[in-house]
Design a protein around this nucleic acid. Structure first.
Length: 310
RNA sequence: UGAAUGGGCUUUAA
């Protein structure tokens, strides 16, 4: 059973839902892990109908299954169902509590998230982090700091979230001090620091963080590329972009927007057309480039090609 | 073997 479950999980991660389902149907014995893995796979690939059908057929749900379903519903935007599942589940552990708190916080309902957090029977540092991140995203530095100070221990997640809240509130010095005092730094927190410097107008410092990074991933490259673009240094953006090992949809969107802002709609369009997959942000950026320059004919032509828009 | 937390892009206003 363990081997089958592992294969199902691997196929699902690869996006091969059919293959996963085939294994699932063929396995001689299914345990609760098999059912949970398959159901979660459907949710994660937005096959909600099939997910719900399977969910209704699970012989027994354990606390992991319930929690996974809470997360799946919340991620699909259905917070009410998530909360309903949470209220109905027979047993809850610290993971299920934290999952629900995080779902509320991610949805921006920090009031409700805090209420639940305060009523948790047990909290661990991940529970605290979920709240810190929620407050940070709301740019509520006061509450973020309060929970940070009350957390049982601090890790990169907590530091990164607090750093972002400080940067968002213009407390660059505090962010720098926090960053300098961290016992560990990884690519994520370095990228957050790049963004912190850049959004507070310190491009050179942003650059030097980037230069000292050991493992520069696509996100770090993009952060600095976007920093130059937002500061109007199109040439620097272009240089970064051209030397990037892998140009994903996000950095392409950065360049579309950058060219659009500089008035070079042709260049914006050219980057856009070369994108193998066009995300919504890219569509918005290219459409905006045309609209801003009053190219209404092309603007309308593009709108007609957009998958969906309001 | 399955569940919870952090970084980069677009979206005229304050």
């Amino acid at each position: 059973v363990v081997a089958w479950n592992t294969i199902i999980q691997a196929l699902a991660i690869n996006g091969d839902l059919r293959g996963a389902r085939e294994m699932f149907d063929r396995m001689p014995f299914k345990d609760v892990i098999s059912w949970t893995t398959m159901t979660e796979a459907y949710f994660q690939h937005c096959r909600f109908d099939q997910a719900r059908v399977l969910l209704g057929q699970i012989p027994q749900l354990d606390v992991v299954t319930w929690t996974a379903m809470i997360v799946a519903n919340a991620e699909s935007g259905d917070l009410l169902s998530a909360r309903d599942l949470f209220n109905r589940m027979p047993q809850r552990n610290v993971v299920s509590w934290t999952a629900m708190v995080s779902a509320l916080a991610q949805a921006g309902d920090l009031i409700e998230a805090r209420k639940l957090f305060d009523s948790m029977p047990q909290r661990n540092s991940i529970s605290f982090n979920a709240m810190i991140v929620g407050y940070s995203q709301q740019e509520d530095l006061k509450e973020a700091k309060g929970l940070f100070d009350g957390a049982p221990e601090w890790d990169l997640v907590a530091w990164t979230a607090l750093l972002q809240a400080q940067a968002a509130r213009g407390k660059l010095q505090d962010a720098i001090e926090l960053f300098d005092e961290m016992p560990q730094r990884d690519a994520v927190v370095c990228t957050a620091m790049i963004a912190a410097y850049a959004s507070n107008g310190h491009l050179d410092e942003a650059r030097s963080i980037f230069d000292t990074m050991h493992e520069k991933d696509a996100v770090a490259w993009t952060a600095l590329t976007a920093a130059y673009a937002h500061a109007g240094h199109l040439e620097h953006s272009k240089t970064m972009f051209d030397s990037m090992p892998l140009q994903d949809t996000v950095v392409c969107t950065v360049m579309v927007a950058a060219y659009g802002d500089s008035g070079d709609v042709l260049a914006a369009r050219s980057v856009f057309e070369k994108m193998p997959v066009k995300c919504t942000a890219a569509w918005n950026a290219v459409v905006q480039a045309y609209a801003q320059r009053g190219h209404m004919r092309d603007f309308r032509k593009l709108l007609a090609r957009m998958p969906e828009h309001d």
